[in-house]
Amino acid sequence: MSISSETKINLLLQDWPLGTVSATSWLNQKGYSNQLLNRYKKSRWLESFDTGALRRVGDSVSYEGAIYTLQHQLALSIHPGGRAALSLLGKAHYLELAQSKVDLFGAEKEVLPAWFKNTDWGIKLDYHQSSFLPAEIGMTEVTVKSFSIKVSSAARAMMECLYLATSSLDLVECYQLMEGMNNLRPNSVQQLLEQCNSIKVKRLFLYMAEKADHQWVQYLTIEEIDMGKGKRSFVKNGSYVSKYQITVPKEMEKNGKQTL
């Protein structure tokens, strides 16, 4: 191996966080040809992760390490959201709820690379392509091992949970999550609600926040939020809430904060 190629691999490994992969397309753009990458593999510096991606020899990569690659190398907005984001934010109250699967969110036209989809990450991953919230707002960074990734903030994660809710049980669980959201920043919540294009999410979010008696609700400017028109029914045989023109599970409307 020539001195130049040794120097290049050293430079590459210096900026390559443990626990992550590198996309071959990104490496090519950085001046690492497929021929050079093959030489690195033969020299046991790198190994194939899947078609289109490489990792350090012997390194263990979790789905978070792949998210790092999607965000930092492929410039995708794909991120852990909903309950998974709450777990990554260190909200111990939500850990059990997040263990069975991870919900990933991305823009409508963002596609997961084949190497990501073909890998068994040891946990169920559901990918949701949606533009109900702009990609750039309500995000925060968390450190995982030796790298950082963007995940939904608590407020955005709560809205993502509501977006995915399809049953009475889902909504009751969402309310239980909302009960723990007592320290959200009103300015961030206001921005998210104003730019959210899901009437369902906005009405349910405000209804639940108000029912949970969170103090930050009083600092929101509700008239600046487009709540849509007409009634919305989210469950069958539920209870109607006239203020928000929504039908919610009976057990949610009937019971108070302490008994739900």
Rank of each mutant, 00 (worst) to 15 (best):
S4A: 14
L11H: 14
L13V: 07
D15M: 11
L18D: 15
V21R: 00
A23M: 05
W26P: 01
L27Y: 00
K30W: 06
L36E: 09
L37R: 01
K41F: 07
K42D: 15
S43L: 12
R44I: 12
T51N: 13
R55W: 04
V57I: 14
D59P: 01
R83N: 09
A84P: 05
S87Y: 08
L97C: 08
N118H: 11
W121H: 07
H128R: 13
H128L: 10
E136T: 08
I137K: 06
G138H: 01
G138L: 02
T140K: 07
T140V: 14
S148R: 10
S148H: 06
S153F: 05
R156K: 15
C161H: 05
C161K: 01
A165V: 07
L171Q: 00
Y175I: 05
Q176N: 11
G180A: 10
L184D: 00
L184F: 09
R185C: 12
N187E: 14
N187H: 14
S188Y: 09
S188I: 12
L193H: 04
L204T: 04
L206S: 01
A212W: 03
D213P: 04
H214W: 06
Q215T: 12
W216R: 04
Y219T: 14
L220F: 11
I222K: 07
S233D: 12
V235H: 01
E253P: 04
N255P: 06
K257C: 08
L260T: 12
